[in-house]
Simulated scan of single mutants.
Amino acid sequence: MDVVTLGETMVLFTPEHAGPMRYSDRFSSRVAGAESNVAIGLARLGVQAGWISRLGADEFGKKIRAFVRGEGVDTSRITIDETADTGLFFKEKLAPGEWRVKYYRKDSAASRMRPDDVDETYIADAKFLHITGITPALSESCYETVLNAIYYAKRNNVLVVFDPNLRRKLWQEARAREVLLELAGQADIVLPGIEEAEFLFGSGSTEQLARKFHAHGASVVVMKLGKQGAYYLDQDMEGYAAGFENPEVVDPVGAGDGFSAGFLSGLLDGLNLPDSVQRANAVGAMVTMAAGDVEGLPEKERLLEFMHNRGQGDVER
């Protein structure tokens, strides 16, 4: 296994028409979850990826498992919970560019993940453990599960990759800051957005905030800057990788997950840090061109074609 990740995935329902949901009688359904998005993105790029989670023994849990497995992700470490339901959420389009999301995930099967759901040998066989700040926000047992996964990774020399993925509605601000800083301090690679960096460390320039993550313990920091691209920093180099032109953004949701998948696939393919960040920018841009969390995630041939046609962008080193 190249990359192992863990977290909650839910079924997303979206009304066919814009406006308040109370007037909608037709909905489409999709599978959505940050960590499984990353795993699917990696699988499409030829990377062996595994996803650890807990699903309800219901039709939605069966749908998620079949979908993720069908995308080439290893789902052998999923736990089926006979006493809890799979989480759901609704995404309401109020107007062009204006969305409202409602979650039904309280006491979901995934929120009951516990440390013994994680198999040390499964982590030990990977090159990277990918975690986000969403999972520890779900419950105390999920927080302990993430810490246990990190412990196994560290004990087996597996690199820990952390995307803060701040979800303010899930927990109190003080607790969020405390836990996200704790996880950032244990990670080898941190992939924050600029707003997440400001949440954790206060105001500062992109370079200053990246150096704070570096001083906090991360060996590699890649700051996501949206359509402007990304800034990268490690002990040997720093610089900016420009974003890719994308005149039409259909749906920005999932772009950060695509970024993570593109970045890790670059490292696994032997690319250097700047070129891995360039690939991450390309995948992130491609995700925004399609509706849904995973629909825009490219296979490698399509990714390389996109990068060639749009130009590599500018990399300052």
Results as ranks from 00 to 15, higher is better:
Phe27Lys: 11
Ser28Ala: 13
Ser29Val: 11
Ser29Met: 15
Arg30Ser: 14
Gly33Tyr: 03
Gly33Thr: 07
Ala34Phe: 02
Glu35Asn: 07
Val38Trp: 00
Ala39Tyr: 00
Ala39Ser: 10
Gly41Lys: 06
Gly41Ala: 11
Leu42Phe: 00
Leu42Thr: 03
Arg44Asn: 14
Arg44Gln: 11
Leu45Val: 09
Gly46Asn: 05
Val47His: 03
Val47Pro: 13
Gln48Tyr: 07
Gly50Phe: 01
Trp51Leu: 04
Trp51Asp: 11
Ile52Asp: 04
Ile52Cys: 09
Ser53Ile: 10
Arg54Leu: 05
Arg54His: 06
Ala57Pro: 05
Ala57Asn: 15
Asp58His: 04
Asp58Trp: 00
Asp58Met: 02
Glu59His: 05
Phe60Thr: 10
Phe60Val: 05
Lys62Trp: 04
Lys63Leu: 15
Ile64Thr: 01
Arg65Ser: 08
Arg65Met: 08
Arg65Thr: 09
Ala66Met: 08
Val68Ser: 04
Arg69Phe: 03
Arg69His: 14
Arg69Asp: 15
Gly70Ser: 12
Glu71Lys: 05
Gly72Trp: 05
Val73Ala: 01
Val73Ile: 04
Val73Tyr: 00
Asp74Tyr: 01
Asp74Leu: 01
Asp74Trp: 00
Ser76Glu: 13
Ser76Gln: 14
Arg77Ala: 11
Thr79Leu: 03
Thr79Arg: 15
Asp81Phe: 11
Thr83Leu: 09
Thr83Lys: 14
Ala84Pro: 05
Gly87Cys: 04
Gly87Ser: 06
Phe89His: 01
Phe89Asp: 01
Phe90Asn: 11
Phe90Tyr: 15
Lys91Asn: 09
Lys91Phe: 02
Glu92Lys: 07
Lys93Arg: 15
Lys93Glu: 14
Lys93Trp: 06
Leu94Ala: 09
Ala95Arg: 15
Ala95Pro: 04
Pro96Val: 08
Gly97Trp: 01
Glu98Trp: 09
Glu98Arg: 10
Glu98Gly: 06
Trp99Glu: 12
Arg100Asp: 14
Arg100Pro: 11
Val101Ser: 07
Lys102Ala: 15
Tyr103Glu: 12
Arg105Pro: 08
Arg105Asp: 02
Ala109Gly: 11
Ala109Asp: 01
Ala110Gly: 09
Ser111Ile: 10
Ser111Met: 02
Arg112Thr: 08
Met113Pro: 12
Met113Phe: 05
Met113Ile: 03
Asp116His: 12
Asp117Ile: 08
Asp117Thr: 12
Val118Pro: 12
Val118Asp: 10
Val118Met: 07
Val118Cys: 07
Glu120Asp: 07
Tyr122Phe: 15
Asp125Phe: 08
Asp125Asn: 15
Ala126Gln: 10
Phe128Ser: 12
Phe128Cys: 12
Leu129Ser: 14
His130Gln: 13
Ile131Phe: 08
Ile131Gln: 03
Thr132Tyr: 01
Ile134Asn: 00
Ile134Thr: 03
Pro136His: 04
Ser139Arg: 14
Glu140Asn: 14
